[in-house]
Design a protein around this nucleic acid. Structure first.
Lengths: 191, 191, 191, 191
DNA sequence: TATGAATGAGACTTCATTCAT
DNA sequence: TATGAATGAAGTCTCATTCAT
């Protein structure tokens, strides 16, 4: 029998890789990075421990890939037309997308929040994270400048904190958190 | 020398217990619960591993005790005169105390935030936590009612989220976070 | 194109087998048997892991084949005309060939020395080795008898030891070992 | 009950450490470093795997300690009166001690020989080894100078090679190797 | 014939906890 | 009360070998 084509191998690899990443994301987010063993991931993903190392060179590589992947897909939520200016409509779009994101990708956001409290994990992705946060902050600062704020930096930090706080409470209490009301309140406050 | 009285022994025990807890808190907060070994704690506290087990029955018991202790000392920050009503001045006092707390007990607060993202740790203290949060929330709701809000519950949740978001950002970026400005902004917004 | 004949297939097989053995020999000698994975060999030889098992039934089979091959090609260095008698000239030829061999087939000789220090590898080739060494020794003994030595056995053992010692030092310190001088010294001593 | 005294602990530690090192030496020497697992050592030494790490921080640390220990005890075999000059009697003493050593500490010498063919192990102790070998060589060179050799360096290298070759053959064939005869032959040749 | 995904045993190492003294 | 040696389970990772295609 002839061997699989390169294409077939590629497909198998892609599918497996995604399965591993999804499983790992869920476990990392709910149990924590340290408490999630490679073994647990492998069992839940229905593969052998050894195979995981065929796709990721280490546990660190795995979480890094997951987080970087997530950060990549965040690009585009703010300043959609990339003109460096954030209009009122764009901010509203951003806020709405933020709520969508935490509802649809709860696990990823849990992981993201976790990061900041696990130094040894944070260190792995710090550089990328700082760049991204800095980009976002600059946008918000410009927005408040344009709105005529007399302390746009503090305003930006405050908005950042508010959003994270909301995300945080949502994670902690998903079932009863009044997402829609809070979203409207926020839009009224800022847009 | 006369033999120590029972009382003296008790005092030594208490002092040592506190020393262990302080050491452990610092390590748990800075290195993480899993990355902190009992050995490290014992060495840093200047005692033997064995003795530590004389004071705490397990690593879990240790962190649980630390967290409960912290929760206990939180009681009293809100509604100081226990009349179930929160005046504008009392809210301001509460907000100021909140900022004091995160600045002075950074380690404790790091640990507190960590909690929410690790099921198995959260489970340890969940019950106590729910009661405490509920109490706080009720107070805030009443405050907004008294202020004539048309949706006091959402307002309360929002304030809770804002505070946690601020704490979160402060923890994540202690060095450059503009504590004072944010505090003033908050007081202006809410009081 | 006409289909390959059986003969052509056989040639391809032989060539590939040799390529695998050469690659493996180099890696075994420079990195060590245990530190050399089948994977590394396959990659360096430009084939797949699976195919390697088409040529060798196991890693042990591979090293065994390499070593036996080497032992085979050693035959003929001594007593070239197979008359069971070693003349002075033939000994000189043997000594010179020995030096040629360790210089030109350094990898093989490294492997050969390694053998003696790992029971489980030695066991694989022990029998063959004993036969070969015995043959060599008998020759040397006869040589010293013919020279009129009063303890030809000890003389033979001594020469064997000296040669191995030289090989050993050459391997351990290839860069600065004075091959030529030592060779001349040896010939002067024994021929 | 009162705890063990510091002295008692020290004694336990010394005894255990020696037992582990002896066991490990034997296994490393006969099976090879890579083929000797920590597990095997622990079982043979009658302790748990974990305990071994109480005494040695890693497998590398273990072999390093063993080898350094051996090198330390070698000091003194050559130039016993430390005057930098090697007399004919001192050389004879050295040769005799060499034979004593390989007979009494066979395992250590096996390990020592092994070293040169396992790059990744050699690297661990290389520095110390080079210093020691250099010292020995300098002595031998001076000896041959004093004897009026016209190429003392080559003579020294040759003697070194001869000794190692003898050691090597002795290891490979301990049972039948004519130690005494070879020793006498050597003394006659060199002293 | 040829590929490389997949397995599973086993390697090194860490650490919470126990226990003799 | 106090010590730290000792254990054993579990964690990360490697790799010879198999097998579907």
């Amino acid at each position: 029998m002839s061997p699989r084509t390169e294409r077939q191998f590629e497909e198998i690899r892609e599918a497996r890789k995604k399965a591993i990443m999804d499983t790992a994301l869920e476990l990392f987010a709910t149990e924590g990075f340290d408490k999630t063993s490679i073994s647990k991931i492998a069992v839940k993903a229905g593969i052998s421990k050894g195979l995981l190392y065929n796709y990721f060179s280490s546990k660190e590589d795995l979480i890094k890939t997951i987080i970087f992947n997530g950060l990549d897909s965040l690009t585009g939520y703010i300043d959609p037309n990339h003109d460096g200016v954030l209009t009122r409509d764009e901010l509203q779009y951003f806020i709405e997308e933020f709520f969508n994101a935490i509802e649809k990708n709860e696990h990823y956001w849990r992981l993201y929040f976790t990061l900041f409290f696990q130094r040894h994990v944070l260190k792995l992705v710090e550089k990328r994270l700082i760049v991204m946060i800095h980009t976002y902050m600059k946008m918000l600062v410009r927005y408040f400048e344009a709105k005529g704020s007399d302390d746009p930096e503090t305003d930006a930090i405050m908005l950042g904190a508010v959003l994270d706080g909301i995300g945080f409470h949502f994670m902690a209490n998903t079932a009863t958190f009044p997402v829609e009301k809070i979203k409207q309140k926020l839009i009224k406050m800022y847009c």
